[in-house]
């Protein structure tokens, strides 16, 4: 069952990569990369149990932290012009400042 679960997590990671390559907007890509990161945490934990070395869990904890910080770090630059999306749609419903 552990090996089957590992394969299933692999499949989910491939689906996330497809969305990351196809994804029409920038935010779809960031979402896919974030999901890929959380699934990597699960994959590392599962592989630790499959190989009989649960010490891999330490690496999983560190990877979860790095994944969170990288996504937050990318989104900190989200108020620059590079991130703005489809300015024609911007007028339709604008947030008040």
């Amino acid at each position: 069952m552990l090996i089957a679960a590992t394969l299933a997590v692999f499949v989910v990671m491939i689906l996330a990569i497809i969305r990351g390559v196809v994804g029409p907007t920038l935010y779809d890509r960031i979402l896919a990369v974030n999901m890929f990161g959380t699934k990597t945490v699960l994959l590392i934990s599962l592989l630790g149990f499959v190989m009989g070395r649960p010490e891999f869990l330490d690496i999983a904890i560190v990877y979860a932290l790095i994944n969170f910080i990288s996504v937050i770090g990318v989104l900190r630059y989200s108020d620059t012009n590079k991130f703005s999306h489809a300015p024609t749609e911007n007028k339709s419903l604008k947030q008040e400042p």
């Binding site: 907007t25 935010y27 960031i30 979402l31 974030n34 959380t38 945490v41 934990s45 649960p54 869990l57 330490d58 999983a60 904890i61 979860a64 932290l65 969170f68 996504v71 937050i72 989104l75 989200s78 108020d79 991130f83 703005s84 999306h85 489809a86 300015p87 749609e89 911007n90 339709s92 419903l93 947030q95």
Partner: peptide, 30 residues
Amino acid sequence: KLVMILLLTLLVGPTTSHVLAKAAMRNGLM
């Protein structure tokens, strides 16, 4: 350690999706 990873995932997940949604909304993705 597994409990720790679970708590970390549950605490971090909502923060990430909220920040992502807020950035998308502010940059005009409707």
